[in-house]
């Protein structure tokens, strides 16, 4: 009798344990499905929450690191929005006489390192022009010192140098970059991957502007990667 009660108690505990173990993954999945994850994002200021995932570079001690994307493209095919994950380098004197914050670019062997952002750039754009939706694949084909990728809008913005006249970029470091328009992998919203008129953000180093460009128009590609 006592043994039977003991056995029943063990079975009961085992059943509870198995139920909890099986229910746990469903609970976690449900957490995301019903929007509790989004609620958490709301707490940390909307689109600028870390798990929005856009920018894959994280500024760490000694440089940046390329982390895997932690958010997939949305239902229309656009990647998550990117944000600055490092101090923005200013090349000009700011309001109130604040001196430039940009550290000198370090170049050599076809590579330019930006100590302010920790980003590493190819010193020359790719020889051919590419449409924005082809830029990522074109950079991945460059294997030397890679892996390389196409820059996001806010990454390419860091290279704009308003302390000089045209082109608005350090041509000592970026020797083959002139009055070029350079594509980014950042989509202009509203974006639909199936729309032939969709646009991507580009940086025009000749005019010093950041503007949309239709995907049908090819432009220069300057590949980038993290420090580590």
């Amino acid at each position: 009798m006592a043994r039977s009660e003991l056995s029943r108690a063990r079975r009961s505990r085992l059943a509870i344990g198995v139920t909890v173990a099986l229910a746990l993954p469903f609970g976690v999945a449900c957490n995301s499905l019903i929007g509790l994850s989004d609620f958490e994002k709301g707490e940390c200021a909307g689109a600028r929450c870390p798990d929005e995932g856009g920018l894959i570079d994280q500024f760490v001690e000694g440089g940046t690191t390329d982390a895997p994307k932690d958010a997939p493209p949305d239902v229309l095919g656009a990647d998550p929005v990117s944000w600055a994950k490092w101090p923005m380098p200013n090349y000009e004197v700011a309001d109130g006489g604040i001196p430039p914050t940009a550290m000198p670019l370090v170049g050599g062997a076809g590579i330019v390192m930006d100590p302010t952002t920790g980003l590493v750039w190819r010193s020359s754009p790719l020889p051919n022009s590419f449409k924005a939706n082809e830029a990522e694949a074109a950079c991945r084909k460059v294997t030397v010192d890679g892996p390389w990728r196409a820059p996001k809008r806010i990454e390419l913005v860091t290279l704009l140098n308003y302390s000089k006249s045209k082109p608005f970029v350090d041509t000592t470091a970026f020797t083959d970059l002139g009055l070029d328009t350079v594509v980014t992998s950042s989509e202009v919203r509203p974006f639909k991957v199936s729309d032939p008129a969709r646009q991507y953000w580009v940086v025009d180093f000749g005019a010093g502007t950041v503007e949309p460009l239709p995907v049908s128009v090819a432009a220069k590609v300057l590949c980038v990667r993290a420090t580590q």
Partner: peptide, 20 residues
């Protein structure tokens, strides 16, 4: 310290590519 006007590149860090 005193506030100041942002540079253009600083202002661009506020731009949210996803409009609401």
């Amino acid at each position: 310290g005193l506030g100041r006007l942002p540079t253009l590149k600083e202002l661009l860090t506020l731009l949210d590519e996803e409009p609401h």
